[in-house]
Design a binder for these strands. Structure first.
Lengths: 139, 139
DNA sequence: CCAACATATTCGTCAAGGCGTATAAGTAAT
DNA sequence: ATTACTTATACGCCTTGACGAATATGTTGG
């Protein structure tokens, strides 16, 4: 009955991280909540593909969705399991050191600063930073 | 040319960890080199299955094999990439807190202490501890 | 209700990979 | 060479999941 650290599927967790598109999504969500149109624009990939991967991450319990009008915002949700949370933070921290991931982040901040240049993002809600208590001192 | 932290496939890495049998194998190899017959005996699963998963781990660069007569010894090899190594250590540390993984380890030490009770392990080479510099202080 | 828009899901196809079974490959001893 | 033994690989079957394309769902504003 008292399974505190179990009930979390480690296998599933790693499977969810075993796809480059999903890693890119997580990297972009690192410290902010984003709506789908940003992912589509930044990754330059078809919207159904993005949505499918986001759904996968949500099923794996790594991501949460919040609806705001027409838009769906996605954010990373730290797993209840301490070990998993630590692992996820470390993964996110490591992603930041990857070339391609840095490029994605750069494109994202550019898009945020001047959304006018991204036709598809006209009127889209801005990313909002997320209060992740001790998010970045893993490393 | 000078890709120091890349050249390591993060996607592959996570895929390799996304299988429970492989996690169990890694857990057993945590701090010692083991030969295949031990895995077969401890996990109680068919030998081809074990060998296939070990091959997978080897292709992913997480494990190394060493031949000694008829026996093949497997050990964990820390990835050259610092982030990956840290992630792997943390994963191994976390595995130790899992019920089922602890049980596997318990069966392993029992088998090592009195191999006579395990018919299949008669004459098999004993596991040898591996000198993993800073293997276990990842919390 | 209808149109426009953002996102989700379905469908068909395909490749990766898990499994059990059978068999191959490598080694040691006779 | 033959046998016994340990481990690896090949085969066929099946499930998962990735993809593009099409379509459905949900929301807002006329």
């Amino acid at each position: 009955m008292e399974k505190k650290s179990s009930q979390f599927n480690l296998e599933r967790f790693f499977q969810a991280l075993g796809d480059n598109t999903r890693l890119r999504l997580l990297n972009l969500m690192g410290d902010q909540e984003l709506c789908v149109c940003y992912f589509v624009e930044i990754l330059g990939q078809p919207q159904p593909k993005i949505s499918r991967h986001l759904a996968y991450l949500r099923r794996a319990g790594i991501v949460q969705a919040r609806r705001e009008g027409k838009w769906m915002h996605y954010r990373i949700v730290m797993p209840p399991n301490i070990g998993a949370a630590q692992l996820l933070r470390q993964t996110l921290a490591w992603l930041q050191e990857d070339r391609a991931m840095q490029a994605d982040r750069a494109r994202l901040s550019k898009a945020c600063c001047s959304p006018a240049k991204f036709v598809a993002l006209q009127g889209a809600p801005s990313p909002t930073p997320v209060e992740r208590s001790f998010a970045s001192e893993a490393r």
